[in-house]
């Protein structure tokens, strides 16, 4: 962040630093309230990916990679896919694949609906990190082309 050469001007950097944090919090809110309000894992995951994309566009590739490297991102994506499968397999303890085995709770509360909030969190992790990996691969390709 101290390196002022890479990335855009000071105004863009200062404002995007604020907006990226707000976007991250908003994405988490959308994911966690997916079973109560419009939204859910897909939309929240894409919003989280967009906040990281904003960091890349404002600060350049290296500053964003120091927060979340490509290897860590792809590992997190694999973990998301595996966790979704494991939650599906948990349903076998009740007798069927993807059965809602946890306690339902009362509707209109944050902790209700059994496995659906867990599934939302896992899907949000998978989609967000996956789209971030796609964008990062495109950016790294552009950079390597310029160096040659």
């Amino acid at each position: 962040m101290e390196n002022n050469k890479s990335g855009m001007t000071l105004f863009v950097k200062t404002s995007s630093r604020l907006v990226a944090v707000l976007g991250l919090i908003f994405g988490m809110h959308i994911i966690l309230h997916g079973h109560l309000a419009p939204g859910g894992g897909f939309a929240g995951g894409v919003i989280i990916a967009l906040s990281f994309v904003l960091l890349i566009l404002a600060f350049g590739k290296d500053a964003a990679l120091s927060k979340l490297s490509l290897k860590l991102a792809s590992n997190l994506e694999n973990v998301g896919a595996l966790l979704f499968l494991i939650i599906g397999l948990l349903g076998f303890s009740g007798g069927a694949f993807f059965l809602n085995v946890l306690v339902k709770g009362s509707p209109f509360r944050l902790f209700s609906a059994g496995t659906i909030p867990l599934n939302n969190v896992v899907i949000g992790l998978k989609v967000g990190v996956g789209l971030f990996v796609i964008f990062l691969t495109l950016v790294i390709l552009e950079k390597s082309k310029k160096e040659q």
């Binding site: 859910g40 897909f42 894409v46 989609v127 789209l131 796609i134 691969t137 495109l138």
Partner: peptide, 16 residues
């Protein structure tokens, strides 16, 4: 809802 996200994945593959 699933179709929209799959569309984004397919679009990124085509662009690459």
């Amino acid at each position: 809802l699933t179709s929209i996200v799959i569309g984004l994945g397919v679009m990124a593959l085509l662009i690459s």
